Simulated scan of single mutants.
Amino acid sequence: MQRGILDLYRQDIAKYAATKMHIRSIFDAIPSQLDKKNKRFVLADLSKSARMERYASDFMWLADAGVVILCRNVTEPVSPLKINEHRSLMKVFMADVGLLSAFGMGDARRELLTGDAGINWGSFLENLIAQELLAHGLEPYYYDRARIGEVDFLVERDGQVIPIEAKSGKDYTRHAALNNLLAVREWGLDQAIVLCTDNVSVDDDEPAITYMPWYMTMFIEKPQPEHIIIEEP
């Protein structure tokens, strides 16, 4: 059924997309791009002459169609993240992690359930977290600079930026890039989250780092607006 959905996506691209060749090549390249260490989508892998100004609307077509999630790089991890985004650098996740599994990456259900570390956990885990954050009203970004390193996700709540790291191994307390990011005091980051295989714990050093199991991503929600009650005089 999942492979059938992927085939229907391809048919819709051929039927409705103005630049169908560009969009189809982006769509089919998603698994291999996520299989890379930094998971950033590299246009040169599609064509040596590919340039973002020619492909930008194609990425947006897929995102607007609900097929992919665009996770853009930011130049600085400060609020508002939207105005700091680097639009030519992004990760491209599938909008559904189950479809990613069916999309040329083999049937990983048994391995995921039994904890087989032989599969590419990174691709599935980051895709799942991006999907869950977006489902709870948080647009995912990421940060990657040579002097800091790569931090998997950044989200914004009440004007505060929260860095999030996704860890699949037992060494989840080792996160050099996250530490480097938090150490830049002018950015004013006062909290961070590490999603890991262990239970909930908090490192109270400032800035505070909260460790949570993967499934608790659903609790990193965007606050709901307060209801204002207007009483008649």
Results as ranks from 00 to 15, higher is better:
residue 62 L to G: 04
residue 54 R to Y: 00
residue 227 H to E: 09
residue 13 I to F: 03
residue 154 L to Q: 03
residue 147 R to V: 02
residue 146 A to F: 00
residue 194 V to M: 10
residue 76 E to I: 08
residue 120 N to G: 01
residue 188 G to I: 07
residue 33 Q to D: 04
residue 32 S to Y: 09
residue 68 V to R: 05
residue 139 E to V: 15
residue 158 D to P: 08
residue 231 E to H: 12
residue 201 S to D: 01
residue 55 Y to C: 09
residue 124 F to K: 04
residue 15 K to Q: 12
residue 230 I to F: 12
residue 79 S to R: 07
residue 126 E to S: 01
residue 38 N to K: 14
residue 178 L to T: 02
residue 164 I to T: 10
residue 192 A to N: 02
residue 215 Y to G: 03
residue 173 T to H: 14
residue 26 I to L: 11
residue 124 F to D: 06
residue 109 R to Y: 01
residue 153 F to V: 11
residue 151 V to H: 05
residue 152 D to V: 15
residue 182 L to T: 07
residue 11 Q to H: 08
residue 23 I to P: 02
residue 38 N to R: 13
residue 21 M to C: 01
residue 80 P to V: 04
residue 128 L to E: 11
residue 134 L to M: 13
residue 65 A to I: 02
residue 85 E to A: 09
residue 54 R to W: 03
residue 201 S to G: 04
residue 75 T to H: 14
residue 110 R to Y: 15
residue 208 A to M: 00
residue 229 I to A: 02
residue 51 R to G: 05
residue 196 C to W: 12
residue 124 F to T: 03
residue 194 V to G: 04
residue 220 I to T: 12
residue 186 E to K: 15
residue 151 V to I: 14
residue 230 I to H: 13
residue 43 L to H: 05
residue 174 R to G: 07
residue 227 H to N: 09
residue 79 S to C: 07
residue 29 A to W: 01
residue 3 R to K: 15
residue 15 K to C: 09
residue 103 F to A: 13
residue 100 L to Y: 03
residue 224 Q to F: 01
residue 82 K to P: 01
residue 220 I to C: 09
residue 18 A to W: 12
residue 9 Y to K: 09
residue 174 R to N: 08
residue 68 V to T: 13
residue 157 R to L: 11
residue 7 D to W: 07
residue 49 S to Y: 01
residue 155 V to F: 00
residue 144 D to P: 02
residue 44 A to C: 07
residue 2 Q to E: 15
residue 67 V to S: 08
residue 91 K to L: 02
residue 224 Q to P: 04
residue 35 D to S: 14
residue 160 Q to G: 02
residue 64 D to Q: 14
residue 94 M to K: 09
residue 201 S to T: 03
residue 200 V to L: 15
residue 21 M to H: 09
residue 64 D to G: 09
residue 166 A to C: 15
residue 11 Q to L: 11
residue 19 T to D: 14
residue 64 D to V: 04
residue 103 F to R: 02
residue 130 A to L: 00
residue 24 R to P: 00
residue 205 D to I: 06
residue 23 I to V: 11
residue 203 D to R: 08
residue 96 D to H: 03
residue 123 S to R: 10
residue 87 R to Q: 11
residue 230 I to Q: 11
residue 135 A to M: 10
